[in-house]
């Protein structure tokens, strides 16, 4: 028959009446308790299993460095190491999502006094240049003469490699954001690259112990627009790796790009 007799005996709840039928109270209390406790538990397990964002960070003290700028594929400052005098590479960026050359002209071989704050991650530091003259001005009291006997390192080819890893924007990866990589961060990284922040490649394997590369196209120029579709994904690329002092440059042939 068309009847559910058992249903007719069940307690009946009407939301706008103030009384919840007594037999329902324990059931609903347990349901509510489980909801609240479940929220707490889920939150804890999701929060504690998030990715390690790494140790990239800003060091909020102004630093000044005298050195020589190279502009390909992206502006890099080479300054003599305080102890060894060896040329040490510093990646450069402007404020926010702006490249180091936004609002100023950086020429290859320019000797400058660069000022700003450091972004530290791994073995390469980045300088976020201050605005205007406080960021970049001709070295040695405005004369533009390089430190004596100092020159940027000559590139040394380390051969052709196929590397697997992630294309990132150099600044967020360096610690401007933590985490500053991964798909959730992709749009942010695109914005950085649009703003001329240097593009870097973080490999899963290493070349001479390094997993961090400045990314160029196969001619050593800034990475092409093809990177936007590859950004923040696991990709594999082939190209020449070049050592320039302590910095490795990956001159990738983007025709060989494969999404993994």
């Amino acid at each position: 028959m068309a009847v559910a007799n058992d249903k007719q005996r069940e307690p009946f709840f009407v939301g706008y009446f103030n009384k919840i039928p007594a037999p329902l109270v324990p059931f609903l209390a347990i349901a509510c308790g489980m909801f609240v406790a479940g929220m707490g538990l889920l939150s804890f397990s999701l929060a504690t299993t998030a990715n390690d964002p790494g140790d990239g960070r800003f060091v909020w003290n102004r630093v000044e460095m005298t050195g020589i700028i190279t502009t390909e594929p992206y502006p890099v400052l080479y300054a003599p190491d305080a102890e060894t005098g060896e040329p040490t590479a510093f990646l450069l960026s402007g404020q926010g999502k702006r490249g180091p050359g936004v609002g100023r002209t950086l020429e290859d071989g320019m000797a400058v006094l660069a000022g700003g704050v450091l972004l530290k991650r791994g073995s390469i530091d980045m300088i976020q240049l201050a605005g205007g003259e406080r960021g970049v001005k001709p070295a040695n009291g405005g004369t533009g003469t390089p430190p004596e006997g100092f020159a940027p390192p000559e590139p040394v080819s380390l051969g052709r490699w196929r590397l697997t890893g992630e294309i990132c924007d150099g600044k967020c990866y360096q610690g401007a954001m933590r985490p500053g990589r991964g798909l959730a961060h992709k749009a942010c990284a695109s914005l950085c690259l649009i703003g001329e922040i240097p593009t870097v490649f973080v490999s899963t394997g290493n070349v001479e112990g390094e997993e961090f590369f400045l990314l160029a196209d196969k001619d050593g120029k800034a990475a092409p627009d093809a990177i936007y579709d590859l950004l923040a994904l696991t990709v594999s690329l082939e190209g020449e790796v070049e050592r320039r002092g302590n910095l490795l440059v990956f001159k990738a042939d983007f025709d060989t790009a494969e999404l993994l």
Binding site: V36, L42, A47, A50, P53, M177, R178, P179
Partner: peptide, 27 residues
Amino acid sequence: GVVLYIYVYLMVAPAFQAVTRPPDGAI
């Protein structure tokens, strides 16, 4: 439920995260 979720995520769990450095507050 919501307050507990957010509170645990932002205030309790960070102490138990296995991270080199904590993520940005905004993230």
